[in-house]
Simulated scan of single mutants.
Amino acid sequence: MSTASGPTRIGVRIREQRRLAHLTQRQLAQRLPYSYSLLNQVECGAREASSSFVSAVAGALGIDITLLTDSEAVTSAQRDRLAAMVSPIRDALDRYDLPAGGVPGGAPLPQLVAEADAACRQVRATRLRAASRVLPTLITGLTREVQLRPRTDAWKALASVYRTAHDITVKVGYTDLAGVALDRMGWAAERASDPCLAAVRHYKRALVRQERRDLGTCLIEAGRSLLDGDTSKEALVVAGQLHLGAVVVAARAGDRAAVADHLGEAHSLADRVGGEAAEVHWLSFGHTNIALHALGARIRMRQWDEALVEARAIRLGSGTLTSRRARYLVDRAQVEMETGHTTAALQHLMEARRVAPEQTRHLPGTRVTVSGLVHTMRRPPEELAHLATWVGR
């Protein structure tokens, strides 16, 4: 979505909608009681659009005027649906320290643990709404369990569902609530006396605050210090994932040397782990995941030519998580778009939508790529118009 404001923003949106309608400026001007020159100046931001002009453009294009004047109104229905999905999770997080005596008896602990694992699997399969429906009950049930029978496995399961709450809320853009979920995860992990869980929390926190390199780096280092001297497979996987978190932080800062160093450390740990570790704290650590992070780093540092080579070299196996596959497809689409391969970019975006619609819609790269394609494709195809509407442009 365009970050322009005022007259420039309206001009940009008029241009986008005109191109989606397959009209040139002159063709649109012929439908308006205004000159071609005025339309041209409004689109480039040199002139402010009057309310009557915007109304006339909307009428000529056959669209709702809010598509040109109020980008927030376009996505209000989406926001309402997300708020309804997230609100019960927020309530469950708020009740973490309240007495659970009035809560009716729930499922036994083994069932709650199995359901917590199932919710995590649903998130990894990008079934966010399905996971969100069961999560509040799981949080409440496990909170009751640790209050009445505080055992290590109960605290671990509670930390796990808090982590799932983070994963859902951060994917749909509720970063403030994602931070609360991580605080709750840390609270439960401390009581579970599980350094690996605590380290995973530091990794997640670093990603949420990646724009602050000093803070992100401190969080990564704090996570690594928790694992000092532990050579178990679990610790090696978590340590490797912490290095990948450091890759994200360093790439955001444009530090290519640090990115290369952390990728090298991650590869060394992956060699020690052997194969892809998909079931260790649900991290999916291995050489494939490292390659995906390397691609993400290229994108953040705007190294488009190198990113294109790496994106086209990646081969995802049939067992690749749906969430990883969707993220790769969106990254690949952005790289193809930035290097001028617009048809390939659109194809990869459409495939990402097919594979994981819930996740793809909310990935920032989706909006960036859709916007770029609208501006660069000479005749935006109908599929792109549908995508633009779908993401709320």
Rank of each mutant, 00 (worst) to 15 (best):
T342H: 13
S284E: 13
L242P: 02
A277W: 10
V335D: 01
R312V: 06
R315A: 12
H267I: 03
K233E: 15
D271H: 11
E234R: 15
Q334N: 09
S318P: 05
A333I: 02
L242V: 01
R300D: 13
A250R: 02
E338D: 04
E338G: 01
R315C: 04
V330C: 02
E234P: 07
L316I: 06
R327G: 04
M337F: 06
T339E: 06
M350T: 09
A278K: 12
V237L: 04
A239H: 09
Q241A: 02
E279K: 12
V248N: 06
H243E: 11
A313G: 02
H243A: 11
A277Y: 09
G286S: 08
G275W: 12
V259P: 06
E234H: 15
V237M: 06
T320M: 07
A277F: 11
A266E: 06
H287D: 03
D271L: 12
L321C: 02
R315N: 08
A294D: 15
T320L: 07
I299C: 03
I314R: 05
E310H: 14
T320G: 02
H341F: 14
E306V: 01
S323E: 15
T343C: 00
N289S: 14
E234K: 14
H281P: 07
D271A: 14
V247K: 09
L321H: 03
H243M: 10
R324C: 02
A266L: 11
H262E: 05
T288D: 08
A326F: 10
S232R: 05
L263Q: 10
S323W: 05
A266P: 05
L308M: 06
G245H: 06
A258P: 04
M337A: 15
G264E: 05
V249K: 07
A250T: 03
A352W: 01
V249T: 09
A260H: 09
G317E: 08
T231P: 11
A266W: 12
H243Y: 12
E276N: 15
D305C: 13
L269M: 07
E234A: 15
L242H: 04
L236I: 00
E310I: 02
R300S: 07
R324S: 09
L283K: 10
D261I: 00
A246S: 14
G286Y: 09
A313W: 01
A291P: 01
L236S: 09
A246I: 04
L269S: 04
K233L: 12
R272I: 05
G274R: 15
A251S: 11
D261M: 00
R256S: 14
G275M: 10
L346C: 13
R324L: 12
D261G: 00
L308P: 01
R325T: 15
G317S: 10
R256I: 14
H262Q: 09
H341T: 07
L346D: 15
L308C: 05
F285E: 03
G296W: 08
H267N: 06
A250V: 00
R256N: 12
I290E: 08
A239K: 14
Q241T: 08
Q241W: 12
E351A: 07
N289M: 14
V280P: 06
R300P: 01
H293C: 04
L329R: 01
R252F: 00
